[in-house]
């Protein structure tokens, strides 16, 4: 499993992560980031891309 953590203190809701992995990250109706905390290993590459492209460098990707 891929474990996803977003530092919500850092996150500025730019939504860049959503374009890399829209099944994991989404902006809700108020423009606030919502995300799932665990994803299948097959999603790792896209989730790492999301972490790379986050302007606030708020996303951490771990392994379980």
């Amino acid at each position: 499993m891929v474990i996803i953590t977003v530092d919500m203190e850092k996150c500025q809701n730019y939504g860049q992560c959503c374009f890399e992995a829209d099944d994991v990250f989404a902006l809700n109706g108020d423009g606030q980031l919502e995300y799932v905390k665990e994803a299948d290993e097959s999603r790792r590459a896209d989730i790492e891309s999301a972490a790379d492209i986050c302007p606030m460098q708020a996303i951490t990707v771990d392994k379980k």
Binding site: N13, Y14, G15, C18, F19, L27, G29, D30, G31
Partner: peptide, 9 residues
């Protein structure tokens, strides 16, 4: 209006 830009992108 960040959240509304996705369709334009």
């Amino acid at each position: 209006r960040t959240a509304e830009l996705a369709p334009y992108r």
